[in-house]
Design a protein around this nucleic acid. Sequence first.
DNA 1: TGTACATCAGTGAACGCGCGTTCACTGATGTAC
DNA 2: TGTACATCAGTGAACGCGCGTTCACTGATGTAC
Lengths: 236, 236
Amino acid sequence: MAKISRNNLHDDVRERIKIIARQQMAAAGTAGISLRGIARELDVTAPALYRYYGSIDDLITALIVDAYNALADTLDAENARYPAGAYAERLFGVLMVYRAWALANPVDFQLIFGNPIPGYEAPRDVTIPAARRPFELIGMMLGEALAAGAMDYPAVYDALPDSIESYIGAMSAQEGYAIPPQVIYLTVSGWSRIHGLIMLELFTHTQPVIGDAEAFYRFEIVTFMEQLGLNPTAYP
Amino acid sequence: MAKISRNNLHDDVRERIKIIARQQMAAAGTAGISLRGIARELDVTAPALYRYYGSIDDLITALIVDAYNALADTLDAENARYPAGAYAERLFGVLMVYRAWALANPVDFQLIFGNPIPGYEAPRDVTIPAARRPFELIGMMLGEALAAGAMDYPAVYDALPDSIESYIGAMSAQEGYAIPPQVIYLTVSGWSRIHGLIMLELFTHTQPVIGDAEAFYRFEIVTFMEQLGLNPTAYP
DNA sequence: TGTACATCAGTGAACGCGCGTTCACTGATGTAC
DNA sequence: TGTACATCAGTGAACGCGCGTTCACTGATGTAC
């Protein structure tokens, strides 16, 4: 009992350190993270933090994994809101929530998808499984919609470049993905599109030209979905 | 004469400072820029640099303006390679060169389109005119292709959201753009797409899933152009 | 052509601040008998 | 229930390094008469 409570305290402090780290990054950029700054905010000396993270790189890794998981959890939660057959509504909802999460958590988004932090090298075996989650969710959604006949097969994808088709095939087999290569391609293609929209919006390149960035994002994904024959009966 | 040569020397050193700054950013990230580091490399004390730039922020601003202009110059040069009527070939070439520039100059690309540098605020009246150039070139190309009847008008754009159409109309009038709002929309839409592709490639998110990132980019823009009825007779 | 003066690049010391990490240690809390 | 011991969070000093900016200055170069 006592041991558990000490462990709980330890985990609590680990969490508090991450929370303060995120606040600091929000103020000074992802590269502005600093152990001493966190220690100051926690009213503790800097060496104390080494009880909780072996180094600042360990802390950054924890923040990155958390960010991927937080994004994936948010998408999963939205996904769970829809009945089994509502392919179009589900996809629309999840893509809208993807953007909303990025705008609500710009630092976490930059941490996983923006400029790398100088001097930091991510331990790929730790970050990659988390990084896969958001991507795989969208891939599964598209794969199920196609399998259920709810989505138009994009004819262009019959003529994918050989180098790409064979790579995806091999990668897909190795990872045990249950969706066809064309759907994986479509997932990366669509993901790139929302990624560009979100990145440009996040760094205020879109707004001066378009005005209403949310309407822009929405119109873009609706157009994209219509091309796939995925038409929600109603948009929220 | 003598005066001019002293001025030339001054400008030379300003250039050398920027070159070293870019090298340092390549090694330590855009946020890793430092006057003292540059001074060390130039074999000069740090205060000497204040003869050339009023502050580190002034230097960053110069680097940003240079980056926008270098990108725009590269696109202009490619643009100039095509005869007047070659709308499809021209667009394809320019979009390919856009990516090539980003990959060849990742630091400059991050500087203008990636995470902002903590503590630095761009003087918008200085950076914005340069920032407009790449965007306006692509907009002009699409506008001319449409005006010449070489491009299919995307029917979806007749139903742009009101908030966007009216904003673009007003912005366009104020800036004196000679292209219709739908073309501006199309430009931002297309720009977002190549931006997402390039950003994800630059930070190695694409390669593990797709394998051949260049073929991916190429296929994406060909598909995009085909939807606009812009079909090059031959791809380089 | 020679001299007095102005211009300006660069120095060196200093200010006041930041950082990650190691180390020997104190002192409180929890554990085992 | 009481005592000896182990665990572990946190301290404070130190190492060795970084940064932007100001300031009074030296000394070379170029200019004007």
